[in-house]
Amino acid sequence: MTTIDPFDPLEPFDPFDSFDVISPFDENLVIDLPVYETVLGEAAARGTSPALIDGVTGRAIGYRELERATRRLAAGLADAGVEQGDAVALFATNTLWYPAVPHACARTGAVVCVLDSQADEAELAAQLTESGARWLFTTPALLPIVREAQRLRGAGQRPVEEVFTLEPVDGHRSVQDLIASESPEPIVDIEPVTDITVVHHAVGSRRRAQLTHSDIAADLAVLASDNPLEKGERVLAGVPFAQQDGLAFLTQHALRCGAAVVVVPELMHAPELLDAIRDQRVRTAFVTQSVLYGLVASAPEDVDELGSLERVVCVGPELTPDTAETCAALLGVEHIEYLGRQAFAGIAPPLPGA
Results as ranks from 00 to 15, higher is better:
V263E: 03
R153F: 00
E233F: 13
A122V: 01
L309H: 12
L255Q: 00
D219I: 05
A276V: 04
L66R: 13
A324Y: 03
A259W: 02
G340E: 00
A329G: 12
K231M: 07
L136N: 11
T326E: 15
D195C: 04
L292H: 12
L96C: 05
F25A: 13
D79N: 15
E37T: 10
T320M: 11
D116Q: 09
V303H: 14
Q127W: 00
D226E: 08
R173N: 01
V291P: 10
H253I: 01
T320C: 09
C105H: 01
L339T: 15
V160C: 03
A92S: 07
P350N: 07
C314A: 12
V261G: 00
V193F: 01
S131L: 11
V35I: 14
V175D: 04
A149G: 09
L33K: 13
D219W: 04
T212Y: 02
A345M: 06
I53L: 11
D8T: 05
T320K: 11
L211C: 08
L247G: 01
I22Q: 13
G171R: 12
E65V: 14
Q289P: 03
I196M: 05
R281F: 04
S205T: 12
I196E: 09
P300D: 00
P265E: 04
L339P: 02
A125H: 09
L236M: 03
E337K: 08
L52P: 11
V333Y: 09
A80I: 07
Q252N: 08
Y98T: 13
V163G: 02
E27A: 11
G81W: 13
V312D: 09
E325T: 15
C105I: 13
S225D: 13
R341V: 04
D79H: 15
I216V: 14
R68M: 10
R234M: 02
F13T: 00
G58K: 06
M1K: 10
V160W: 05
E148V: 10
D279W: 10
P228H: 09
G58T: 05
A329M: 10
T138L: 00
A345R: 06
D245F: 10
T326M: 14
A299N: 06
V39W: 00
G76C: 12
Q244R: 06
E182Y: 06
A69E: 15
D8H: 07
A297K: 11
D120F: 03
E42C: 01
L66A: 13
V264T: 13
V111K: 08
P317T: 08
E65C: 11
N94A: 00
T323F: 12
A297I: 01
A242S: 15
G171K: 07
A343S: 12
P159N: 04
A297G: 06
A259M: 00
E334H: 10
L29P: 04
G154I: 05
L211Y: 14
P240D: 06
V313I: 15
E167S: 14
Q118I: 00
G294W: 08
H253K: 01
P228M: 06
F13H: 13
A221E: 01
